[in-house]
Computed example of a mutant assay.
Amino acid sequence: MKLELLASFFLLTTCFTAFSQEKQDTAVADKGLIKVSVMYPYAEGKTFNMEYYVTKHMPMVAAFLGANLVKYTIEKGLASGIPNQPLPFMAIGTFYVKSLSDYQAAIAPHGDAIRADFQNYTNIIPIILVSEVVN
């Protein structure tokens, strides 16, 4: 029994250490990247078609970014961090790019097409935050 507990502890410690190292490696790899977060606030009567966003809109925008794009993520809002409070965002799409000026240059000629595509998945005006990953 004691040996089994030690083996389980060793396995858990090894897994935790590997997970922690992976998280640190990811943080180091992302440091210095420009993060463009497109946030869709929740409001009564607003709609959001996640399937379209995942399969059409985000891949379209990602294609415009070319080699400057490192990765992108899509988040579906589930709940507020405060119990019994409304959901703050229905969805958040995030692009991680190497250069802000390259991002802006790539997006500028396609701005009308990107905005026109909104009607295919939402009636929400997004909030956009551009930031630098510091850790």
Rank of each mutant, 00 (worst) to 15 (best):
A29L: 09
S99T: 06
K23G: 00
G81N: 09
F118A: 10
Q85N: 06
I128V: 11
I114L: 13
Y72Q: 06
M58A: 15
P59N: 00
M60S: 12
N120D: 05
A62M: 14
L12R: 10
G77N: 14
G111F: 08
D117V: 08
A18F: 03
V54G: 13
L129E: 15
S37P: 02
Y72C: 05
E4V: 11
V38C: 10
A67S: 10
V36N: 09
D112C: 05
Q104R: 08
I92M: 03
Q21C: 04
E132Y: 09
L87P: 13
L33K: 09
I34D: 01
T94I: 01
S101N: 12
E132S: 14
P126V: 03
R115A: 15
D117C: 05
G66I: 09
L5Y: 10
T55W: 05
G45P: 00
M90Y: 12
K98Q: 09
K71P: 08
E75Q: 15
I82H: 15
A62P: 14
G45E: 06
H110Y: 00
A79C: 09
K35L: 03
Y40P: 03
Y42E: 12
D112P: 04
T55S: 09
K71M: 05
A63M: 13
E4F: 08
A62K: 15
V97N: 02
V133D: 04
V70K: 10
G111Y: 09
T13R: 07
N84V: 00
A113S: 11
Y96E: 07
A91Y: 10
A106T: 00
Y52A: 00
M58S: 10
V70N: 04
T122D: 08
R115T: 13
L12S: 09
V61Y: 07
F118L: 14
I107C: 03
I127V: 13
L11Y: 02
L11S: 13
F48L: 07
M60N: 09
G45K: 09
A106D: 01
Y96H: 11
Y53R: 00
T47K: 14
A18K: 14
F9C: 12
S8D: 13
F64A: 10
V97T: 07
P83D: 06
T94W: 01
F16L: 14
L11I: 10
Q104H: 02
A116V: 11
D30T: 11
L87A: 15
P109S: 01
K35H: 07
L78T: 05
T26F: 02
F16V: 05
E44R: 14
M1S: 15
I34P: 00
F16M: 12
V61K: 11
P41I: 05
G93T: 08
T94H: 06
A18Y: 04
I127T: 13
